[in-house]
């Protein structure tokens, strides 16, 4: 997985917050997975690596750097675009909490 991680900068055991009108970019304090109701799961057998899901994911949570596509479940909101756009129906949306 080659995606940014939630990493609130720490200083002496306390959370270090930026002061002033500027703040460092790429400073992730929180995950977005709480928005998700349905979880996309890729069937790697069916996937033909066309990268359509990677291209159209509004959150950029699909990582194409590895052999197989991976979804960053920390930031996936479960919108379902990847499953809807997949030409070979290799992505299934599964209710969170179900197996």
């Amino acid at each position: 997985m080659n995606r940014p991680k939630m990493n609130p900068p720490q200083a002496g055991g306390k959370m270090k917050l930026p002061v002033g009108p500027n703040a460092p970019g790429g400073y992730l304090m929180d995950v977005s997975s709480g928005m998700r109701v349905f979880r996309p799961v890729i069937d790697q057998e069916k996937c033909v690596h066309c990268l359509r899901c990677f291209l159209v994911c509004p959150d950029g949570t699909i990582d194409k750097s590895g052999e197989q596509l991976e979804i960053d479940y920390d930031y996936c909101k479960g919108c379902g675009i990847c499953a809807h756009e997949c030409k070979v129906k290799a992505i299934e949306m599964i209710m969170e909490g179900d197996a």
């Binding site: 995606r3 940014p4 790429g26 995950v31 379902g80």
Partner: peptide, 13 residues
């Protein structure tokens, strides 16, 4: 592959 707009709080989709 690198994301430069990540972890935002937009609505799903």
């Amino acid at each position: 592959n690198e994301e430069m707009f990540y972890g935002h709080k937009a609505c799903g989709g």
